[in-house]
Design a protein around this nucleic acid. Structure first.
Lengths: 254, 254
DNA sequence: AGATATTTGTTCGTATGTATT
DNA sequence: TAATACATACGAACAAATATC
C-alpha cells in the first residue's frame, strides 16, 4: 500500500501494517505454536505504535487464529496454530453470500469422499471402528420425533466427519470436513434434514456398513466405489427432497 | 465460555462478544454486502462499550473480511463479502503449521481439476480462450533466465487459475484455486519452480493445448481425461524433482 | 480549487480484571 | 491473603481522510 521506505515523519502506523509485520516476524523467526511474542508493552515500543493501535493489530491476528493471549503473570501473547474448526468458520464466511447449491457441494463430495475412503484403507484401528459404529447406532433405527430425525442426519454427517479426521492427508481431510460443515449450515439442507427421510437413512446405513467391511477387508477399490455410490445416492435423494419442498415453500409465500 | 445469562453487574463486554453480536445482527437483519452498519459512535452506545473496545471488535470483523470501513462524510462501517483472495489467505494459515506434501496436494488436484475441466465444457467464451492463450504464451518457449523459469511456472498455475475463476461451481472453483495458492507458497515447490524444468513445461503445454481443443469440441469426457493425465504427469514430475533435490539439500547441511 | 463538516483513526493516562506465586 | 505481572477496558483529546459545497 503506502509503503515509501525511509520516512522522517514517522506517520502513525496502522493496525493492518503492524499486523503484517508481526506475521513476518513470526515467519522469519520461525516461531512455532506456543512460542511467546514480546509483551504488549514491548511490542508498543518495538513498533512505535500506541497501546490502542497495537491492541487492534493483535485482535486482527487473534481473529485469524494466529495468536492467543493470556492475562496474569506468565501471561502474554502466544503464537497459535489456526485450529480446524476456526478455519472452517472463517472459510464458511466466504460462502455465506455465495450460497452454493446441493449440486455444487455434491459434485465435489463425489470426487473427494471416495478418495478419502481409499486413503483410510489399512490405517483404521479397532478404536476407530468403534467410533464409527457408535456414531451409526444413533441412526440404526427409525426416528420417532422430529428432533431425533435431525440428530440422526447430524450423526450421519459425523460418520464422514470421523473419516475426515482420520485422513492422513490434511488437505483432503480438511476439505471433506468442510463440505460437511457446509451441508450442516445451508438453510436448504436444514429444511431437508428436519423432515422424515427413511430412505436416506436406510440406504446410507447400508452403504456405510459395506464401507466398513471394505475397510476391514483392506479392499481399497471397493471402499472407493462404495463411497462413490453412497455420495451419488445421497445427492439424488437430497435433490429430490429439494424439488419436493420448493412448491411447499412457494405456497407459503403467496 | 463464561456465558451465565442474567447478570446484574453488566460486566464489560469483551470484543469477541460484541463481534459475535454484530455477526448475529448482520444475519438476522439479512444485511447484504454494501449495506451500512450503524456508525462507530452509535455502536458504542448500543453495545455500552468504550470506543477502544468497539474498535477492537470491528478490527476482528474486518480481519475476517466481514466489514470494511471508510472515513469521511458518508463514511462508516459496511457489510462486506469476504473476497476470494482473502479467504485463501485465511485458509492458508491453517496449513502453515501443517505443511502438506506434494502428494497430499496432487491427490486432491487429481480428483478436482478433471471435474473443473468438465464443468467448463460449453461455457467458454472467445474472450476466455484468449485469456488462456495469452497465459500460455508466457511459457511457449524455453526460459532463458532463472527469473523467467519461475515466472513460467507461475503462469502455468495461472492457467489453472483462469479455469477455476470461470468455474460455475463456487465450491469447486475455490478449492482448485486454493490448491494452486498452496503450490505457490510451499517452500518445497518454490525450490522446484526455481530450477529449469524443460520437460514439465513441454508436456504441460501439450496437455493444455489438447485441453483447449476438447473445450472447443465440446467434448466433456476428453476434457476430463486430459486434465487427469495432466495432473498425474505433473505430480510424478514434481515428486521426481523433490527426490532429486533432497540429496543436494542434505549435502549442504553436513 | 479551497473551506468545511463528518466520520474514522490514533494516542495516552488511568483504572480494572485476572491468574500466578 | 497479599503482592505481582500481565492483559483488558474506559474516555477524552487530537489527527487524518474524504465527500460536499
Amino acid at each position: 500500500m503506502t509503503e515509501m521506505a525511509g520516512k522522517q515523519k514517522a506517520r502513525p502506523k496502522r493496525p493492518a501494517v503492524i499486523c503484517d509485520e508481526i506475521k513476518d516476524w513470526i515467519v522469519t523467526q520461525k516461531l512455532k505454536p506456543g512460542d511467546p511474542l514480546p509483551q504488549e508493552k514491548a511490542l508498543v515500543e518495538r513498533f512505535r505504535a500506541s497501546k490502542g493501535t497495537m491492541r487492534e493489530a493483535l485482535r486482527s491476528l487473534e481473529a485469524q487464529g494466529l495468536v492467543t493471549t493470556r492475562t496474569g503473570p506468565r501471561g502474554g501473547i502466544f503464537v497459535s496454530a489456526l485450529d480446524e474448526n476456526r478455519a472452517m468458520e472463517l472459510l464458511g464466511n466466504y460462502f455465506f453470500f455465495r450460497q452454493p447449491s446441493i449440486a455444487d457441494i455434491y459434485t465435489v463430495r463425489c470426487q473427494l469422499e471416495p478418495e478419502l475412503a481409499a486413503s483410510l484403507v489399512g490405517l483404521m484401528s479397532d478404536e476407530d471402528y468403534q467410533r464409527l459404529e457408535e456414531t451409526m447406532r444413533v441412526y440404526d433405527h427409525p426416528a420417532e420425533t422430529v428432533g431425533e430425525e435431525y440428530r440422526q442426519r447430524m450423526a450421519e454427517l459425523d460418520f464422514h466427519g470421523v473419516l475426515a479426521e482420520l485422513c492422513p492427508n490434511p488437505v483432503l481431510g480438511f476439505m471433506c470436513g468442510f463440505l460437511q460443515s457446509l451441508l450442516r449450515d445451508l438453510t436448504v439442507c436444514r429444511r431437508i434434514y428436519d423432515r422424515p427421510n427413511p430412505e436416506l437413512r436406510e440406504t446410507g446405513l447400508s452403504y456405510q456398513t459395506r464401507l466398513i467391511e471394505a475397510f476391514r477387508a483392506g479392499d481399497r477399490e471397493s471402499a472407493r466405489s462404495i463411497m462413490y455410490k453412497h455420495m451419488l445416492s445421497a445427492w439424488r435423494y437430497m435433490e429430490a427432497c429439494e424439488a419436493e419442498m420448493k412448491p411447499e415453500f412457494l405456497r407459503l409465500r403467496k
